[in-house]
Amino acid sequence: MDDYSTKIKISAEHLIRKEFPEKALELDKLVSSPVLSFSEVSKIRTEFQLPTADDIIAHLKNIKNTNSTDDYHNSTSVVNNNNSGSTKKHKIDSNDTMDSSESSTYEFNGTVPSNRLISILEDKLRPYILHFLDSVAIIKLWIQLMIPKVEDGNNFGVSIQEDSLAEVRTIETEVTQYIDLTCKYLISRGELIKKVVKYPHVEDYRRSVQSLDEKQFVSLRFIALELRNHYTSVHDLLMKNLEKIKTPRTNQIHSLY
C-alpha cells in the first residue's frame, strides 16, 4: 500500500507541475485558432440533403404523369380489344391502382449526416475533458492521502487541504456536465431532423437545426475556454499551496491563497 501511495503522490505532482500547464497552453492555442473563431459560424450553417417543398412538388407531378400515362395505355388496350370483336371486359386489379393518399406521400430514403464541423470540434475537445476528469481523480486522492490524522495542533493545515479538495471537486462537477451537453445536443438535433423530414415545407424547422448547430459551436468554444481556465486555476491553486498540502504547518498561521 505504501508503494501505491507513493505512486499516486508522484503522479499527482507530475500532473500539477507539468501536464496541467501544457494542457492549458494547448487549449489556449486551440481557442485562438481559426477552427474556433466566430468567423466559422457561417460555415456551421450547412445545407441538409433533405426533401424541400420543390422536391415534393416534383414528386407529385411525376406520380401524376405516370398515372396519366397508365390510364392512356389502359384505355387504348380496351379500345383494341373491342375492335377485335372480343366481348370480354378488361378488368383492372385493385392492386394495380394507387391510392390517392399514397401517391401524395413523399418518402425520404437516405442518411442525414451530423454537422461535420461540430463533430470535428467535439473530437478535439473530448480528450481534454476525459484527461481532466481522470487527472482530477488522482489529485483528489493525493490530497486525501496528504491529510494527517485528526489530532490537536494540525487543524489549520488540514483546513487548507480540505479547502483545496473542495475547490477541485467543484471544478470536477462543472467539467462532468460538458459530457452531457454533447449528448443532449445530438438528441435535440435528431428530433429536429425528424421534423424537417416530416414537414419539409416548413422553413422554420430547417432554420432551427441551423440555429442549434450554431448554439453548439458557441458552447464548444465556451467549453474550450473553461477547460483552459480550469487547468490554469487548479495548477495555480495547488502550486501556491503545494508545501502546505504536503506538510501542514501547525506552528504558524497561514491563509489559503
Rank of each mutant, 00 (worst) to 15 (best):
V197H: 03
E47G: 06
L121S: 06
A224W: 00
P127M: 01
N241R: 04
L212D: 02
E102M: 11
P34N: 01
T176K: 15
G110S: 07
I120D: 08
L237D: 07
T170E: 10
E172T: 10
V136F: 04
I179V: 14
R126I: 07
I139L: 02
I193A: 05
M239N: 07
K61Q: 13
V112S: 09
S77K: 12
S42E: 14
S11H: 11
K149N: 09
K244N: 14
K91L: 14
P34L: 00
S37G: 05
E151N: 09
Q210F: 05
Y72D: 06
F48E: 05
V168M: 02
T111V: 15
I92P: 00
S11P: 01
D71G: 00
R45S: 11
P248T: 06
T6P: 01
H73M: 08
S77N: 09
W142D: 06
N81F: 00
L125Y: 05
S159A: 12
Y4I: 04
T66Y: 12
N80S: 12
K215G: 09
D152E: 15
L133W: 01
H254N: 11
D28F: 07
P148T: 02
L181R: 09
S77Y: 12
Q216R: 15
P148G: 03
L225W: 08
G85E: 04
L50H: 06
K149F: 08
K61W: 08
N109S: 13
I8D: 01
D96G: 04
R45K: 14
V150E: 13
N80A: 13
K23N: 10
V136I: 14
Y4N: 02
D28Q: 15
I160P: 00
S114R: 13
Q161M: 10
Q252A: 12
D70H: 08
Y231L: 03
